[in-house]
Nucleic acid binder design. Structure first.
Lengths: 316, 316
DNA sequence: TCCAAAAATGTAACCGGTTGCACAACCGGT
DNA sequence: ACCGGTTGTGCAACCGGTTACATTTTTGGA
């Protein structure tokens, strides 16, 4: 592998000039830049990230922290963050870890010494813990907001509220919400948004909490029927899947008997029409998070931004 | 952050001795080791991975290459690899990329210069391409075998064959196999294994290829019924899900009318019993791959191992 | 007790970039 | 022709570890 020395030698300049020609062209005579670039090209020179990291005091590594990977919700977010990271010249490492135990805390502290920043998903952690972790290195919170920490969220609360309003507009007067994991931030926000949206206009039954799995749909089926709801808003698509399956098994037609919300992929998978979908663009969330983080890392005066990406509600 | 110099000074030894005391204790007097360790402890010293990487000429980074993250099949594999990597002192970075285009090739070449090794999943790529990529840096192939490259696979072909035999033993004489993506290595192997297992004992209809999505299950439903099969072996659980759903919608009972294979999680999700599950332990696959790779990276004389993890067939 | 071999430690070079500082080249203005 | 000021380049230190080699200390056998 060619080093900067080789390039400098071939271009007939010093290592310092070669370095500047490639990294800070504004300091170098155009003619020289050209020669250095050419030399780098013919040698197939790629600067060593390691050497650069050591010299600059930054690693070029960003850690994305997720509580687990089972929940396929995170997959597109990771993918988006990865793509964006690559474009910005960073490496993304995945760390599967909660923030609950003190050993988690220790691990995060160690990790912080090895990366430039965190992309943090921690739907269930206490806010104090999040703030402590966020203070270690520049951090962007994903799918959650906390004062003093930049964050990117898909604005699903608004989408859920708007769906609730849609239901009312279509004549539903009894609506159920099947909640996600207890203590999860998105679930809290959604519950709140739906409650506010239906205040005084329709009857709301909140069920849950439930883990975001198809099993939950089966479990909750009876309660949904008993609630008398004609429209159901579901925290996450897997629950929807299970519920729709269970309803059909019970002879309740969807969406004619009961309308159940889902997402685009799920309704395609179940080959069912006439139901509303709430689609979070995970790729965009991931990209935006990484973008915000790189801005933070490269800006001399970091600001705290809270980004909210719109979430469409779509009737199939 | 404390450096090795600080530790050495506090312990009253040279930087070199401090380094050795921590990294290669067998070269240092026990008494000295103790003093150095103590000094490191009180200073909270963590060696800089970057500096170490530069000195050692290895980055401590391993890239896991996956074609996409939508397919949730990879999630547990990644998680397993990540956990193992952490234990072995490596960082794992995820790279979402196929190997088809020549720009992919270029990207892999660049990536190879920045990491110590690859964990490569490439079910559909040509073997020549895989060999070219595998030649760049130490590589472990996941869920695929190729001569000359170490690999870890879950032995699902054997599981599928054994399931086919189970079906015959239970009296089925007409069996269908719904294949996965065309040209995918695991699909080829499974098809082959099933075909061999049923040779002369039962009638086999091979359907497909299909993408591993629930939609495929709907699509294939009619063909399954027409084939007259009473037992169906399915490439992947999502297809199973769609198929079972479609069959029920058509009034065919599962498993009494037609037995459809799935996996544990799916049959739990669908709350259905009496069907066989083929469960790949993705976590174990991920762990084993990373383990093999670290052995490769640290062994002076790398050998080519092909690891096959057993895959259980389980009747619920 | 003495000496060669083994064990423990220190010195300094090295990994491959970046960057502060000194110096040289070049500019337009008088 | 002379000079202050800008631009472009080179020298060398530095980031924080590792390790070859030299040097010192310890050990054990004669």
């Amino acid at each position: 592998m060619a080093t900067l020395d080789d390039v400098a030698q071939l271009a007939g300049v010093s290592k310092a000039t070669a370095s500047r020609a490639l990294a800070r062209p504004e300091l170098v005579k155009p003619d020289t830049i050209l020669r250095v670039r050419q030399a780098a090209g013919t040698l197939g020179f790629e600067p060593s990230r390691i050497a650069r990291a050591l010299a600059r005091g930054r690693t070029g590594l960003v850690a994305m922290v997720v509580p687990n990977l089972e929940n396929s919700f995170f997959a597109p977010i990771i993918e988006g963050a990865q793509l964006q990271a690559e474009e910005a010249g960073y490496h993304l490492t995945i760390t599967v870890r909660g923030l609950d135990s003190s050993s988690d805390q220790d691990a995060m502290e160690r990790l912080a010494g090895q990366v430039d920043g965190f992309l943090l998903t921690a739907p269930q952690a206490h806010e104090t813990v999040i703030r402590r972790v966020g203070a270690l290195v520049p951090t962007v919170l994903i799918e959650r907001e906390a004062v003093g920490i930049p964050s990117v969220i898909a604005d699903s609360p608004t989408a859920f509220a708007s769906l609730a309003a849609d239901f009312v507009r279509r004549g539903h007067t009894s609506i159920a919400y099947i909640g996600g994991p207890g203590g999860s931030w998105p679930n809290l926000m959604r519950t709140e948004a739906i409650t506010a949206a239906l205040e005084g206009t329709a009857n709301l039954t909140v069920l849950g909490p439930f883990p975001p799995l198809a099993e939950s749909g089966f479990e909750v089926c009876e309660a949904v029927i008993n609630s008398g709801a004609t429209a159901v808003i579901v925290y996450a698509a897997p629950i929807s899947l299970g519920l729709m399956f269970a309803l059909k098994a019970r002879g309740v037609s969807v969406p004619d008997g009961i309308v159940v919300s889902g997402d685009e992929r799920m309704s395609r998978a179940m080959a069912v029409g006439g139901i509303p979908s709430i689609d979070v663009d995970g790729l965009a969330v991931g990209r935006a998070s990484m973008q915000l983080l790189t801005r933070l890392l490269e800006s001399p005066t970091p600001t705290v931004d809270q980004v909210r990406l719109p979430v469409p509600v779509h009737w199939s």
